[in-house]
Design a protein around this nucleic acid. Structure first.
Lengths: 341, 341
DNA sequence: AGCGCATTGATTGACGTACCTCAGATTCGG
DNA sequence: CCGAATCTGAGGTACGTCAATCAATGCGCT
């Protein structure tokens, strides 16, 4: 039973409630010997602070600032929706979320947005980060000003951010490579449609993918990647050109957004059944492409899980709680036609 | 701001605190017109009850009984560990968990265990269910006595359980079939190592697997499944015999526990590189088998997620909260060598 | 007018913790 | 042994909600 209260603690330790309180909240003015007696009692009774009551007494809230890129992409929209869902959920009523929107792919604007975050208003910032020196500096400044920073989806590992809430993108790229490599029965060429090489997650996916294809599938030839800046129209045009030029493309990895364009190009080419295509992010488009057979696998990160995890990490830090190992590991979801949710 | 309190509500509605309380807690003795006024104020101010404070006032706890099968299996041990982790975590301090262990594969004993659950002591039971009529009856009886029941890992869908916390096992079987089918480059025979056909999850996995192999990979020949009752030694012996008899086995699906035996048989046969093997549950054994190449893919369900989800569902029901769509969907995790956590 | 009844108000004491004040006790240096 | 500094106790208020009591109001009815 967690039914031990401070009163019982005080009785057990033979001190007053005030002293127990001083010890529990590390206030000064208690002799070391007395501190020890109280701590022994804590051990003996297995006392655990009632967090809910404590938060109530402190009238504590968790004001968090979410900084997300703007853009019409389905993934970003899903992220926003998840943030809203959390904010509205009664279970997380003490979490107060403010959203800030910045232009996508713009390190300078992002750094500015980070700079104007008020340390008195927010205990933490959750940010979809572009990995630019300015951004790293802004993150570190924020941390110095006492605001915890959690990176979402795309990391800045060299910064002093508290946590990264996202997937291991190198592993995601390797997984895509394994799927492409093993699903392709004959030799052939493999194309890559990338988003922006400014985003660390895209760079890492490509790295992981190319590494495995080169090392383990020597029969496959990697074509230079298309940079489509997550723009569906651009992706479609460029990919169509690539497909025209190389009649023997047998595999494709679409590692950014802009799936709509990739799907269109594949279907127009009339070769979708002969090309093993692996893409990222499960959206309505990519889901249909899976069902129709245009895509053979889709790698996904669960935006809801990422948002909730970020918040849990921030709360745990604020409350001085441990995290549950495993709960905050964001999975690399692999979807085929057969296991669509 | 969610900072609206009952006091502000009372002021806004022009009634007293007592009346607000009566409306909020659906107590009688308030005129319909007044109820409406208060509810209008709730809407206007976007009042949400502070769950923490409410639980504190009610001194509410969530006593839950976990009924899990005994057995040396790594998955069951992992389940137990997760239950313990949750119970010890300060965040879920009002959750009081009692664990009951019953013999595996024994519907009668399980039904008995369900029968003796005290409805006054527990608000809910979480149970790894075998799908037997007796068990279904016992679950329904419990529900009638006012105890919510959540099935874990293995479901009894025809019962009146509140929720099933586990994966879609048919989809898992289909996924395994897709992997086996697409990884096998030539024609060949496909073996199945099953656990117990008393467990609904095993039956469903096999169904999904066979269905896809038959429909989509006509070049593959399904061998009759081995029933190994999750016993490693038995699995090894039977699988070795099967491998001896059929020199042209190219694929294998191990859908139950007992991976250790499957791995041993595969490695002894010397044909592990020529057999595409897909198994269930990521354990230390199966993880090593993935790395060494004995297994080509492992399908997993996250025991921690399942346990936490079950508890969340129960709490939400008890508090009358909505669930967050998506958070309680247990994923079918697919692991390759490349995306091992 | 007087009765009972339904409705509402006012107030109070929990729940477990935080934080504050003030007074009393103990210790220590000189 | 005295004064000062340090420790400790006792008690209060607050956080937002629940739950209960008791008094007050207004209503219809006889």
């Amino acid at each position: 039973m967690g039914r031990v209260t401070v009163h019982q603690l005080a009785a057990e330790a033979g001190v007053s409630l005030a002293t127990v309180d001083r010890v529990l909240n590390r206030r000064s003015g208690v002799r070391p010997a007395t501190v020890e007696r109280v701590e022994a009692a804590i051990q003996r009774l297995d006392y655990r602070r009632d967090v809910a009551a404590a938060n109530l007494a402190k009238n504590r809230t968790y004001p968090i600032c979410f900084i997300v890129p703007e853009g019409p992409g389905e993934f970003i929209r899903a992220l926003e929706a998840e943030v809203r869902t959390i904010a509205a959920h009664p279970g997380s009523s003490r979490v107060e979320i403010e959203r800030v929107v910045v232009p996508a792919f713009d390190g300078t604007k992002l750094a500015e947005a980070l700079k104007v975050v008020d340390p008195d208003r927010f205990i933490a910032v959750v940010v979809v980060a572009t990995d630019a020196p300015k951004v790293r500096g802004a993150i570190n400044d924020l941390v110095d000003r006492g605001v915890d920073v959690v990176t979402l989806v795309s990391d800045v590992p060299t910064s002093r951010r508290l946590h990264f809430s996202g997937i291991d993108n190198t592993a995601a790229g390797r997984t895509a490579a394994t799927l492409v490599g093993r699903f392709m029965h004959r030799k052939g060429k493999v194309g890559i449609v990338a988003g922006s090489m400014l985003l660390r997650d895209h760079v890492e996916r490509r790295m992981g993918f190319e590494q495995v294809i080169r090392n383990e599938y020597p029969g496959l030839e990697l074509l230079p990647p298309i940079e489509a800046r997550d723009d569906a129209a651009l992706a479609e045009a460029e990919l169509s050109r690539l497909l025209d030029r190389h009649g023997d493309i047998g595999g494709l990895y679409s590692l950014g957004a802009g799936n709509r364009g990739v799907i269109a190009a594949l279907e127009k080419s009339g070769r979708r059944d002969h090309i093993v295509a692996v893409a990222h992010e499960l959206t309505e488009d990519s889901r249909q492409a899976l069902v129709s057979g245009t895509f053979d696998a889709v790698i996904n990160q669960d935006a809801g899980h990422e948002v909730r995890s970020a918040i849990r990490v921030i709360q745990a830090k604020a409350d001085g709680h441990p995290l549950i190992p495993g709960q905050e590991r964001i999975r690399i979801d692999v979807f085929f036609r057969d296991n669509l949710p």
